[in-house]
């Protein structure tokens, strides 16, 4: 079942972020929200995850759904090792057989050698990879991502996005990915929603036509599409 937000209203202090806003996110797909900073992208994720209340509006398709969230910053507990950080979020019944699974996911993000390290021994990019592994290992139905690649250097970013897609293909979880980076949106997103400044409206919805082979920054189709999207973003 898709996730539908209908007639959403949300104010922050005096600012109206959402005024009669509606959006539908397809199930088992990576939807991407692209927009300038301060356009209410994080607010939308916080509403979906229950961290923020709405002023009014209806959200369908979320009841009983379990969510994992990859935040802008890694949000690891500094006093726990990588293994303990991941174990911490696992439900009781999954903790017993978790070690193998943790190692498997850490391998996928290339951090299996760091399983017993503390966060302060890892670089920013490594910590974010741990938080990605944590989100995927958590038995969720939906993954929310709030510009998780922002702090990661460009070279690593591309390989991390490929890793992300590889892990995602195992179970095709519903993903909502928020970014202001057009490249990230084109590589990861299936439906790409372009947001305006608040009060937010959807300026454009783009079905990403690129094949996996075309998802490369030096590809002609990729470049043309990027130019088109940048013109919407103005």
């Amino acid at each position: 079942m898709s996730i539908q937000i209908v007639n959403l209203y949300k104010n922050y202090n005096d600012q109206q972020i959402f005024r009669d806003f509606s959006i539908t996110l397809q199930e088992n797909q990576i939807s991407c929200i692209l927009g300038p900073s301060g356009c209410g992208k994080t607010t939308l994720l916080n509403i979906l995850s229950g961290l923020t209340n709405t002023n009014s509006g209806i959200i369908n398709g979320l009841s009983g759904k379990i969510i994992s969230y990859i935040f802008q910053d890694p949000r690891l507990l500094p006093w726990k090792t990588v293994r303990e950080n991941i174990r911490f979020v696992l439900p009781e019944q999954d903790k017993k057989e978790s070690d193998e699974k943790i190692l498997l996911y850490l391998k996928m993000v290339g951090l299996s050698d760091f399983i017993n390290h503390y966060p302060n021994q890892l670089s920013g990019g490594m910590k974010q990879r741990v938080s990605i592994a944590r989100a995927f290992i958590y038995p969720s139905d939906i993954i929310l991502m709030d510009e998780p690649l922002q702090t990661i250097d460009p070279k690593l970013k591309l390989s991390l996005m490929k890793t992300f897609l590889k892990i995602w293909k195992n179970d095709n979880r519903t993903v909502l990915f928020v970014t202001h980076d057009v490249d990230e949106a084109l590589i990861l997103g299936k439906d790409i929603f372009i947001f305006s400044h608040p009060p937010v409206s959807i300026k454009n919805i783009l079905k990403n036509p690129l094949t996996p082979e075309e998802k490369s920054i030096d590809n002609k189709h990729f470049f043309e599409l990027k130019k088109k999207i940048l013109s919407y973003l103005d």
């Binding site: 961290l51 969510i67 969230y69 949000r75 979020v89 958590y138």
Partner: peptide, 24 residues
């Protein structure tokens, strides 16, 4: 509070939030 919010999203029980986040 970011850590607390993270724990809430991952449905960690209050008991464990106190034990694993507040106390350390």
């Amino acid at each position: 509070h970011d850590l607390i919010h993270m724990a809430q999203v991952y449905r960690i029980r209050n008991k464990n939030i106190i034990r694993h986040i507040y106390i350390p």
